[in-house]
Design a binder for these strands. Structure first.
Lengths: 232, 232
DNA sequence: CAAATAGTGTCTTTTAGACAGTATCGC
DNA sequence: GCGATACTGTCTAAAAGACACTATTTG
């Protein structure tokens, strides 16, 4: 196969091209709030793990490679968040970055991981470059996906109680959710696991996710709160 | 300012980089259905307008430039849809594309524009590369934005009737919407323009968009239909 | 007047949300 | 029994959706 040339005889490489990076915001829930994984470097301080995209590779595979190399994490599902392309965003030159998001249960992180709390959709410590904004995008994406299905990223294990599920959603949406309405909205996305979890009082029933079950769109109103209007 | 070098003395340009393009799906509503603007070329057949991103330029500005050059369209607001990065997607070599979406009223297109109907979220004619999938993304993005506000892209003019607005939404969501519920959902996102539009019967009141007014999240259920469940 | 289209009153069914009740455990 | 937590029945207010009625134009 011979290399492509345009009308003036130039190939693609004869034109200026940016470097293309991926940066990954890996979220988790701990202590009732969202947190994000960061890595430390002498030059950048705190930053999201990232890498340059290699030839023949998709950005998603580059994200997998970055997480394996920089945080020792394998088998994660990434979601594309958007392209960050301000020409000034990287002091090294013309670098655009494709931000990706993912979420993992706390126990899958290496013990020496650095997790930064997210408050008001922004990490509480400064991150390098435009990485704080990527975190905001990752949170928005997580909320959208959690409004459509029951814990799609399996931040809880296979089996969980309704209380555990509600506390997870309260952390993700950063607001209290009414106990009984929450149960009624989600219960027909669940099946009993036939087991009980003993605790301080009456044991709670353990549930599993109903496979391929989407939540009704009205559930989004519950999680987000039906922004303003009405209630005169 | 001296050029950045990494530990092995190499600059960014010493590593392989992809060409980065933008492709733009400009949507409109005509004859009660969504359509998308395409351009014809001898080599690619039908394709979305696009261009390579220039140094010092954002992808959004490249999108503006592409539309001005290839379709004679100015003053459009673009929304980023996603990155298409399959290494095989372009026969010329390693080209990733940042897809953008926009929407314009029919009367803003040049008279010789080619508009392709969109049925089942896909253009009815084959497009080059992965451009058909970009159109699907653009439709999804348009629907999301139209569920959050009243005709944010101003496909209708400044003033319009509730009937006109409903027909627009029926075209966008490709489903009939109940006349009275639609009105009650949207009417408090509108203000009367103090004018009437005469027609075959009783004249219809003209409305304007209430500035900065978000629709309640429950409106999304109306537009999309509350996917399945219930109603036993 | 009839025809046509705009807009609303109202009824039914459903549901969110609140509250309080009942159920089931450990002690 | 008592405390604690899980779950559920029920009431109320609100809203969706359907239907039909009223309103205002043209011819």
């Amino acid at each position: 196969m011979t290399k492509w040339r345009d009308a003036s005889g130039k190939s693609l490489e004869d034109y200026p091209r940016p470097s293309v990076a991926v940066d990954v915001a890996v979220l988790t829930v701990a202590d009732g709030e969202l947190k994000v994984l960061v890595v430390k470097s002498p030059r950048d301080g705190l930053a999201l793990p990232g890498t340059f995209v290699h030839p023949g590779e998709t950005t998603q595979r580059a994200a997998v490679r970055a997480l394996a190399a920089k945080a020792g994490l394998l088998g994660i599902e990434f979601h594309q968040l958007g392209v960050f392309d301000d020409p000034q965003r990287d002091y090294r030159g013309w670098v655009i970055s494709v931000a990706h998001g993912a979420a993992l249960p706390l126990d899958r992180f290496p013990v020496d991981s650095t997790l930064i709390s997210i408050v008001n959709d922004v990490p509480v410590e400064d991150l390098a470059y435009d990485h704080a904004q990527m975190v905001t995008f990752a949170v928005a994406d997580l909320r959208e996906r959690y409004a459509r299905a029951v814990d799609p990223d399996r931040l809880l294990g296979e089996a969980f109680t309704v209380l555990g599920l509600r506390q997870l959603y309260e952390a993700i949406y950063a607001r209290p959710l009414p106990k009984d309405t929450f149960r009624r909205q989600l219960v027909d996305g669940l099946v009993s696991a036939g087991q009980l979890e003993v605790g301080g009082g009456r044991p709670a029933e353990l549930f599993r996710r109903l496979p391929n079950c989407l939540l009704p769109r009205s559930a989004a109103s519950l999680f987000y709160g039906d922004y303003g209007r009405r209630r005169g």
